[in-house]
Design a protein around this nucleic acid. Structure first.
Lengths: 209, 209
DNA sequence: ACCGAAAACTGAGAATAGCTCGCAGTATTG
DNA sequence: CAATACTGCGAGCTATTCTCAGTTTTCGGT
């Protein structure tokens, strides 16, 4: 059980839940997941420990809730990139530039939260499932654009998924885990260039439905 | 403190440490990191809890020790690929095929251990550092081969690192986290093809020292 | 063979963190 | 204005990590 055990119905309780999540986000980021206690979270949120457990069945559930928020936000940002692409119908290099830079911004905007969810947190099966779902949705949108552009090689669906996974891992490694030797923008450009090459191979016509 | 607090000197204690690590690996894989208690590990290893804490300062240290073992083994496997390449001097497609298939084998051979270290485990800064070090060593070897092959684009070092990060993430996603829709070999082939394209761009001569 | 010091081992229990449960206020409904 | 549902409380129960004082084993030196 990782989903809330009870939905807040009144305004008062909605505020309680919001305060708990806010406190959890702050403390998790400041001290790490393992070193943050649920009692401290309740204290900081200004509610009792009992109230916390009314809405979250266990400590992991707090993390899953934060992850859900973050994933929804991120997915929306990326969806906007594809919405613009659907109108402007940009060439492949421009589309990839927009996509990679959007993902890079997600990393650099809130590195603490990103780190929390991807590094510190024990990845419960639940969390992994949600991550993969988000990945697949983004890959699906990308595959559509690849088909439009007659790009992405013989299997645009698979290559789109590989691209999404690769881009995330590369930006994460380069922006969060490497010594800040200064040239983050250069690294981002390298990622863009790399995927322009990898995805520019035309897809065969019979693969376009 | 995550390194052993005491080095075993006698044969007896070396066996104790080995038994503890073996028990930890089994129980972590069977029940997950969080649901495995240090007391159970000691019990299964046939030693007292006190002995365990003589050699491992805390529960995380057990995981770090296992990760170290696994990383060393993996790095050796991959080093062999590059050792063969240094002799045979294969063309880029063959080199990438060998490399990707080697990494794929590491995933599928012991999926439980791989999952443990990459998914379930809380990634302590220590663990992340070791992972990145291993990544960098492999990337360095790959960059050398790219230079020999006049491939890897304008910045073979950076592109080699991006390739290593991308390959790991893609294989992980495709081999461990996606529903086994059967075509794992096909996915591995797709990864190979993709990196052949991405890395085949010639590097400029002035970049070769 | 024997001794003594260092190494190894033991396990009860201290310290601590996650989580429960019964009760007491507060909003909502008819 | 009852009756009912919702919300909040926090002492304390339970389980787990980790310590430490005391015991046993090993091994080099005589």
């Amino acid at each position: 059980m990782l989903t809330p055990r009870k939905q807040p119905r009144q305004q008062r309780s909605r505020e309680t839940v919001a305060a708990i999540l806010e406190a959890a986000a702050q403390l998790f980021q400041r001290h790490g997941y393992a070193d943050t206690t649920t009692n401290k979270i309740a204290e900081r949120a200004g509610v009792s420990i009992g109230s916390l457990y009314q809405y979250f069945p266990n400590k992991d559930a707090l993390l899953v809730a934060l992850a859900e928020h973050y994933l929804i936000q991120s997915t929306e940002q990326i969806a906007q990139v594809f919405a613009r692409a659907a109108e402007d119908r940009p060439p492949l290099p421009d589309l990839l530039t927009d996509l990679v830079e959007c993902v890079a911004t997600l990393h650099t905007d809130r590195p603490g939260l990103h780190r929390l969810l991807f590094d510190q947190a024990p990845r419960t099966p639940d969390l992994v499932t949600r991550l993969r779902q988000a990945e697949r949705r983004i890959a699906h949108a990308l595959a559509g654009e690849l088909r439009r552009l007659r790009a992405g090689g013989p299997n645009p669906d698979l290559n789109a998924l590989l691209a999404v996974q690769g881009i995330e891992a590369q930006l994460h490694g380069v922006l969060l885990d490497l010594p800040p030797d200064g040239d983050a923008p250069g690294h981002v450009r390298a990622v863009i260039r790399l995927w322009q090459l990898a995805l520019s191979e035309p897809c065969r016509l019979q693969d376009v439905r």
